[in-house]
Write a protein that binds this DNA or RNA. Structure first.
Lengths: 329, 329
DNA sequence: CTGAAAGCGCTTACAG
DNA sequence: CTGAAAGCGCTTACAG
């Protein structure tokens, strides 16, 4: 069934049929009604591809996921993509997923060169981000989930720095002094922002952190175990995991060593997901609305695609959840 | 840059250019060489949409994810989609994600009616599966990840039933007698299969399970907690969680009640992911290669799309991991 | 308010 | 081995 068949059936031109469907251009209510009634009856849907070719709009966007091993442990991207697809569906858009690592962006390139998308959402940002460089050069509309200092890039992000500042200073305010930070790959911008927040938190409290207690680029169970042991020997008051995956690994090690939380040591996380939600004891952490983050990123992208002016940076709210894991005796 | 521009530039017809690129039809090596050299030089890529319109192949497939709250806890789909996109990329295909619940399949319908895909992969199957019914009726190529008894449906699945049979009978063989099973939504086919396997395991050992110890449709922290308490009162030997998410919740409750594993009670899981991998003590479970599952599903789908004959059901291997959580004293 | 016609960028019988 | 032409299913100035 094509627009031609309908035109013939109704004894009108296909131009008119097209107008009835799209709602563009003058058309009498009566013929419009006839057309709509008929296409509903035969359950006609215009071919998205033909429309794409004619209008050079694909009605597709791409969501770019990091193809790194650590993401499998994190519900973040799954939740984010939920928000994106949900919002996209409202605008009659569909979404491609593409896997991209810091070094290999070929999947994204294919999507763009084949003209399959009107825009992209980058799920993670890197410090020297190939994807950002490529999309900027190609002038493809895109927004990042996560921050970047590349000028002109539209970004939607959790307010990691602000949240980490608040949580850190609250912990300090409680009287905890030796706070240790265990973080992952510092080529991810998000991890740097959290580190900044940590430092800001100390600054706000008028104190300075012990640099020896800040461990970045910690990855893998072995390295985490080693780090936790060191921190225990140094008798820190509290260990902060930079994300839910790391914090979970920290907790596992602590349990294994029969360390009591919060009696022997306090624990907190700079990011909360269901992994930590169910923990016993409950874990002090920062909580973000990731689904909303995805939806906002998607809305912002549509703003760019439609040529509206959009906020260059949107920071999402957070909640500080003070829980059992940092309770004083 | 279009095929026309190239033709003009090289003083040949666009028919010839098209043939040089596609490799279809007779063409002299020399002109073919000229064309290829030129398109490489100017970095030309044909428009996927124009090709779609001309050939009515989209070079896209859809991956359908369940839009249910429980999936956020499970890395399964993220891993599976990794396998799918990886395999798809090899065949120059791109993949859409679409969220679908047991009751609402509108996202999938949009993808199909708009002619945006050549085929679909269903990430989860339900007992009365609307998506399967719809796709079958529309004669759209698709394969399911997960089993179904709808006739004619091509399916790729973990051998859940076989694995659960093995694990159950091994547990019985160890001398454990009162095995309790805690499972989720029984409208998911996968959960039924695992239940079958559990029963088969007893049958193989020549025993019969205590029906009172089989709890299906257990969901939410409150209900799990209640169930665990009951099972403790009934002094069962071992609690088996039907998936990683449920097992994780069981473990959390046990820790909270200060129950020692495996001393006070044994624990096992019918499905293993990174959530359980890091647990302390290590958890006896079934292990599947989910990335490979995704790749196989994708390959199978291409078989259908290309009109090759494919296996109606592919069952993926599993490993039984006997770990600390079921160790006898 | 309606229509004929050109065009979007490819592919593919058909003819030579 | 190569090309002219029709066609894939829409949209959109342009004319009436």
């Amino acid at each position: 069934m094509t627009i031609d068949d309908i035109a013939r059936e109704l004894n009108i031109s296909k131009t008119t049929v097209s107008r009835a469907i799209s709602g563009k251009g003058r058309i009498s209510e009566s013929t419009r009604g006839r057309v709509m009634a008929y296409i509903n009856e035969i359950n006609y849907r215009p071919s998205a591809i033909a429309q794409s070719l004619a209008t050079s709009k694909t009605m597709n966007i791409g969501f770019v996921m990091p193809d790194e091993s650590d993401v499998m442990d994190m519900p973040f991207f799954q939740t984010c993509i939920w928000g994106v697809t949900t919002m996209a569906a409202r605008m009659d858009y569909d979404v491609f997923v593409s896997m991209v690592s810091a070094s290999d962006i070929s999947g994204l390139v294919r999507l763009v060169e084949n003209h399959k998308v009107d825009g992209l959402i980058l799920g993670r940002t890197y410090t020297h981000d190939k994807a950002i460089a490529y999309l900027t050069e190609k002038k493809v509309p895109f927004v990042t989930v996560g921050s970047t200092d590349v000028p002109g890039v539209v970004q939607v992000d959790n307010d990691d720095r602000g949240g980490c500042t608040d949580l850190t200073s609250l912990l300090l305010l409680k009287g905890l002094r030796k706070l240790a930070l265990v973080g992952g790959d510092s080529t991810y911008v998000v991890n740097n922002n959290r580190l900044m927040g940590f430092l800001d938190g100390y600054a706000r409290a008028g104190m300075t952190p012990d640099q020896d207690l800040i461990h970045m680029n910690v990855s893998g169970m072995y390295m985490i175990e080693k780090t936790v042991k060191e921190l225990l020997e140094q008798r820190v008051d509290c260990i902060i995991g930079m994300d839910d995956s790391i914090c979970n690994a920290i907790l596992t090690n602590l349990v294994k060593m029969h360390i009591k939380i919060p009696d022997d040591i306090k624990v907190a996380s700079f990011f909360n997901t269901s992994i930590l939600d169910h923990n016993q004891p409950s874990i002090t952490s920062l909580k973000y609305d990731v689904a909303k983050l995805g939806m906002t990123a998607c809305e912002t992208l549509f703003g760019i695609i439609d040529g509206r002016s959009v906020k260059q940076q949107t920071l999402m709210n957070y909640e500080v959840l003070m829980k059992e894991s940092t309770q004083l005796k």
